[in-house]
Computed example of a mutant assay.
Amino acid sequence: MFDLQIIGTKIVRELGELIDQHVVVIDHNGFIIASTDMSRMNQFHEGALIAMKNKEVMHMTKELSAQLKGVREGLVMPLVIEDTPIGVIGVTGQPFEIEKYGKLVQKITQFFVEDFLMHRKKERETKMFELFLLDLLNGQVNQLLLEQRAEMLNIETDLYDRVIIIQLNRRIDEKGMDYLRAIQIIHPQLHIFQWSFDKLVLLVPKVTRIHLEQTLHSFNRKLVKLYDDEIFIGVGNSHSFFALNESYNEASIALTVAVENRQIVFEEDLKLELLLSDLDEQKVGNFICRTIGSLIEEEELIYNLEMWLKSKGGLQEIADALHIHKNTLKYRLKKIEKLLNIDINNNENKLELMIAILLFRKRKSV
């Protein structure tokens, strides 16, 4: 049975602004649960029970108001959902005066009820899909059971092959989620869900890599403009539907790299970062300490070293990018060599330093 109490006050408030008459909402037991006249709250309305029993609009005449308990002159209209009366909407006043309001009141009330029921149905379906997705991406539920649930939810399992995770450092309400679904152009049947407080998960239909990149960059620009925040995106690889937990794990790795580099990252593009994604924390700490440990408190030196290691240009080009003088860069590189007690031009040392900085950045982003 639908509980009219949930939206009764809203119905009364809206109707009270539209018509110059008192309005009451009466539940299926015949009690007034919302009214523009607060003195009538929780009173029994015998006429409402009769209207619900007969499933028809009734005029509460002066004679009836004298005979029936809790009744005033006016009009009572049963609210019928799927052939079942769920309550009554009443308008007080002389019947000939309020007759003109009858159909308007009934239609507006019916709209509120149907809109609420539709919204609740959508919420229930979304929740069921989210629970299914949680089990699918955790990879710990029997595939046969997942297949049965997918069929029950009418999910086209042949359509989806990839998972994307978006981190945006905020929670989005249901209206916001609906808006995001409306503005994305990746695919009409793309699913977007709030995954945790600061993350969204996208269940992506089969599209080409080029199309995905283009539309994902477009979506990212819209997100940045909408929320004025840093957005990080990790993209998993293509897999069969019931192996999408692998795509989810890959998207998580790609997201970690994206947070470090502030960009959209496809897991399939990762090389060294992939190797470093699941190392023992103690070993990582020891490696950082043995390589760049002397620079840990010198963030500026680490950044200058990182720029030098990554650059293919000469010292002047690097200095210009850092907005410092070439001689200042030379001085800092010499200082780094002295602090680390190594030759930073040695290829083996370069590789170790680059790995150490990658691990250091990864640690800081966690």
Rank of each mutant, 00 (worst) to 15 (best):
D3S: 10
Q5I: 04
T9R: 13
K10H: 12
E14K: 08
E14R: 14
L15E: 02
Q21V: 13
Q21C: 13
F31E: 09
F31P: 02
I33W: 08
S35C: 13
T36K: 05
D37N: 15
R40M: 13
N42T: 06
Q43H: 14
E46W: 12
M52T: 03
K53F: 11
N54K: 12
M58S: 08
K62N: 15
E63D: 13
L64T: 05
R72A: 07
G74I: 13
G74F: 01
P78S: 02
E82H: 03
E82P: 00
V88D: 02
V91P: 00
V91F: 00
V91G: 01
T92A: 14
E99G: 03
T109N: 04
Q110N: 13
Q110G: 09
F112E: 10
H119I: 07
E123T: 05
T126V: 03
K127A: 11
L134Y: 05
D135L: 03
L137T: 04
V141T: 15
Q143M: 05
L145V: 10
E147G: 06
Q148G: 07
M152D: 13
E156I: 07
T157F: 07
Y160H: 09
D173Q: 14
A182V: 06
Q184I: 04
Q184T: 13
L190F: 05
F197N: 12
D198C: 04
T208V: 08
L212N: 00
L212I: 05
T215A: 09
L223H: 07
L226Q: 10
Y227V: 02
Y227H: 01
G234R: 04
S240A: 11
E250N: 05
E250V: 07
I253V: 14
V257R: 06
Q263F: 12
F266T: 00
D269S: 01
K271W: 13
K271P: 09
L275D: 14
D280V: 12
V284H: 05
N286I: 15
L295D: 00
E297P: 00
E300A: 13
I302M: 09
N304A: 15
L305Q: 06
K312F: 15
G313P: 10
A321P: 05
H323N: 15
K330T: 08
Y331H: 13
Y331T: 14
R332C: 03
K335W: 04
L340N: 10
E348I: 14
E348S: 07
E352V: 12
A356Q: 01
L359P: 05
L359N: 01
R361S: 11
K364R: 14
